[in-house]
Design a protein around this nucleic acid. Structure first.
Lengths: 251, 251
DNA sequence: CGAAGGCTTGATAGACCTCAAACACAGTGG
DNA sequence: CCACTGTGTTTGAGGTCTATCAAGCCTTCG
């Protein structure tokens, strides 16, 4: 790892992310590329920060895939969020003190860490960047709401289809998927932990979806032959991702 | 309704709310009490703002009780949040454009509306107030996570007990409950919509909880004879409400 | 007094879980 | 090269939680 040499490139990812939300001035861009970052690499199934910790820095995911989760006394696990490259999964620690859940990788992942101090400093001088980060946390909450709706009121079939649609969309936004294919980075057990289902049931529902021709699964490569059909089965409406602002404005 | 005469008192509630999070300077207090607000009253089961709207103002709940919810094509409803006096349920619209769910009352409710413009203006001059509001939205997200965990991995009994614990805590924070008693403002159907359960099952579980002596329900008055017992049954840990900062700091 | 909404009860069905075991595949080491 | 291990997937059987349908009851309120 050579953090120093990587920092500029990594800030570029953050830059691209924030620019997809709003246009940035030169000043603001420089403030971002000037942020002191250190890159750390994590193996698969490794905690990045743990429930109860009080982090003094937040991280930007550079590559890989991971999730936020909480372990219950019963030993069960609930995954409450997933993060893809470009996401900033623990922004909440900036203002909330102790973390109320853990953050861990699911596959090997690299992340760039920025101290809360630097972030606060940046936002003090560039309030609009603060607003953009705030907006990020609001989108995370919107995704959370959609998950809640799914677990509360959708069938297992729709829930799984919905997750697959969401992942496709989020991967596509960072160039990790075309319209119909991506690498599914979760095991069936992990899908179950995210959707409140047992591994066995996830397996059976996936088989149903395959039999219905809604998905094709070769190894970890997921193909969606008919996107509309899958989204229909899922009751998927991408509005909650609040993702299209850049395109809508014609970027 | 005489908005003009009510405004000062209503700003007081907001003031108390924000002061429970952080100490405020005289300047900041004046900025808050100076916010132009208009008060509106709503009957029970009335929408305040609807899914898809683009509000230009946010509201502060003065009294009453309501929820955020979304209707599914199937006709089912999922309640994704509840709000009590002092809450600011649609702060997200400040930065997220179109609302991705509806906000409605469950009982008669009064709310004070402040334009996004005024809020942005206030935050521009008092960045720390913006941080406090940001923090509010982060707490809402933390509550959402806990709901997700409940619906995903807790039994119906624990889920219902958990909701009752959360409501007790949140009502107590605004003086609407002592340690053991409060007015439950939700019907059994609404509890079901919040927790992803059918009305019938909610009814049966409530009977179980009563039979177990964990709760006493006379009309809409809920009494909790043994708080520890109920919280244990619920797997309730209040940390996620991030509510104790004021007390911890000795306020 | 009738109507409406909420609560309660019974019966039945289905979605999903748990337990248990077998299978497939990749990586490891002898 | 081949057992060997570990992780992930698949299958089967049985059980339970929770939903659905349908009806009756109670309280409130006009």
């Amino acid at each position: 790892m050579a953090p120093a040499s990587r920092a500029p490139r990594d800030a570029g990812l953050l830059l691209r992310k924030l620019e997809s939300i709003a246009d940035l001035s030169e000043d603001e861009k420089q403030a971002i590329t000037g942020l002191p970052m250190t890159v750390r690499a994590f193996g698969p199934d490794t905690d990045i920060v743990q429930d109860g910790e009080r982090p003094t820095e937040s991280c930007l995911v550079l590559d890989g895939f991971g999730c936020g989760y909480k372990l219950l006394p019963s030993g069960k696990r609930q995954i409450v969020s997933v993060f893809v490259p470009g996401d900033i999964p623990d922004l909440q620690s900036l203002y909330l003190g102790a973390l109320d859940h853990s953050l861990g990788t699911l596959v090997p992942t690299r992340a760039a860490f920025v101290s809360h101090h630097s972030l606060r400093d940046m936002m003090r001088h560039h309030p609009r960047l603060g607003e953009i980060l705030w907006r990020e946390t609001l989108i995370d909450a919107a995704i959370l709401r959609e998950w809640l709706i799914g677990i509360g009121r959708r069938s297992a079939h729709a829930r799984i289809a919905h997750l697959l649609c969401e992942l496709r969309m989020r991967f596509a936004a960072v160039g990790l998927s075309d319209d119909r294919r991506y690498d599914l980075p979760m095991t069936q057990a992990e899908i179950g932990d995210a959707l409140g289902l047992s591994t066995v049931h996830v397996n059976r529902v996936l088989q149903d979806l395959r039999a219905a021709g809604l998905i094709v699964l070769h190894g970890s490569t997921l193909t969606i032959p008919n996107r509309t059909a899958l989204e229909h089965a899922a009751g998927f409406d991408a509005a909650y991702l609040h993702q299209n602002n850049a395109e809508r404005r014609g970027a």
